[in-house]
Nucleic acid binder design. Structure first.
Lengths: 242, 242
DNA sequence: CCCCATCTTAACTAACCGGTTATTTATTTC
DNA sequence: GAAATAAATAACCGGTTAGTTAAGATGGGG
């Protein structure tokens, strides 16, 4: 669990922890019920609450009042810090995306053999989706809205190229070593690695009915992960003919 | 295209076409603006309109007024025939599910070699999702709601067992012939076949941004389909050791 | 110590939305 | 052909929702 380093904190919360023991340590009047001011904390609580609410019901189903209540903030604060419901959704999306990328970078795959690196990436993807199911909901929601928010996000634009390079490097090393077959497209492979975990987990409810098994039972989850590792191994394996 | 036999008609519409030249062919008073009565047609129009509206915006985002307008029916008719928005969604879901199963049955895979049958199933799955994108939206929407509607549907309960048998039979034949490796779980294989098409197509919008390519360009689609066929072939292939 | 930008709150509103009521009109039944 | 039934319509309702107003609280800078 700790391996993915996901603490449930938003990127904003992470930043705050690291950089800010600034706001004078002992608030003068911690007396009574008078709420202390802490803009960063308020903003952070709103973002975290929004994450949960958007995850629960999607962009359309989420209620701004619920977010405010959950964040223990006044609704006006949401509009003060995030301008609109859609902009708040965009912020959540960005934070979430940066979260998975940060976790991915911490894997240090370059130190592993190509096969181990690929296995590790498959296992990481599975684990991350399993432990952060809201990420799947956001991606679904965003696609329902034709990526309207993602398209406008400048913050993420620079992340994409770096991201596909991870898989490309593994493939290149594997082909050079002769353990992977040549000609594998990095994008197709990456999509496939995501797909086999994503589909199983995002469709956990209908899947459990259609296939008449509890897809989320512990044994079933382990079984699926091993199946996925095997699927990708076979996909990249060099043909024994040569 | 015609191969999947999908005409865009609902199951209800299909039934009506086949069984009902009953309602006397020439309506007596087609005069003026007086709206003719046609319960089946009205119900069918509502279902079709609901399909489009739910597909556009999901259960939460769909507007009952929009459905009524699109169906050229009075809103009250929706409640007359379908009781509630949620029941209407359930009806759409059932119709959609029966649609893909009907198309699947018409494939007649038992007449093919195991390898050809599996290829055909992969191609069918891809084509069906591509031509009926609303199906993907419904599954997503339903999972966001934890399969609340699907669970209650009696009409579909009997479909599920028959459905997994299709893949199981292909596997059994392939293993018997020695072309497939033994020990492949039919459910895992089926999930994987669905996953590699589903993920690519349902995440077409975010995917096109993240991977910086138009995933829906004609060449890209063909490329992906062939990649998927190859992925499944390698997954089931008997190991050359024996 | 006081000004003033920033943070925070409660109350408000205009539009929307799922569902209903009351009524009319067409079709079937006997 | 009258009574009964089913289909269709328009107008309406109560509750909800995203977003706003206006005013007060707070605290850092001068």
């Amino acid at each position: 669990m700790a391996t993915t380093e996901n603490t449930g904190d938003s990127a904003l919360a992470r930043r705050r922890k690291a950089e800010k023991p600034k706001s004078s340590s002992t608030p003068r009047s911690a007396s009574k019920l008078a709420r202390q001011r802490d803009p960063d904390a308020t903003k952070g609580r709103i973002l975290e609450a929004a994450k949960r609410e958007f995850s629960r019901a999607g962009l359309g189903g989420a209620r701004v009042d619920s977010i405010a209540a959950r964040a223990k903030a006044n609704k006006r604060m949401i509009y003060h810090y995030f301008n609109s419901k859609e902009d708040l959704f965009t912020a959540v999306l960005e934070d979430s995306y940066l979260g998975i990328r940060a976790a991915e970078r911490s894997l240090a795959l370059d130190g592993l053999t190509p096969q181990d690196a690929l296995d590790a990436l498959v296992r990481f993807t599975w684990r991350y989706y399993l432990e952060n199911p809201e990420f799947l909901t956001f991606v679904n929601s965003e696609n329902l809205h034709k990526a309207r928010h993602l398209r406008k996000s400048k913050a993420l634009a620079q992340e994409y190229p770096r991201f596909i390079e991870i898989v490309q490097r593994i493939i290149d090393r594997g082909v050079a070593d002769g353990v992977f077959r040549p000609g594998i497209d990095a994008v197709q492979l990456n999509i496939t690695i995501a797909a086999i975990s994503y589909y199983y987990l995002t469709n956990r409810y209908t899947g459990s009915i259609v296939y008449d098994r509890d897809l989320m039972a512990k044994d079933r989850l382990e079984e699926r992960l091993e199946f996925n590792v095997e699927t990708i191994r076979r996909l990249v394996r060099a043909d024994p003919s040569a």
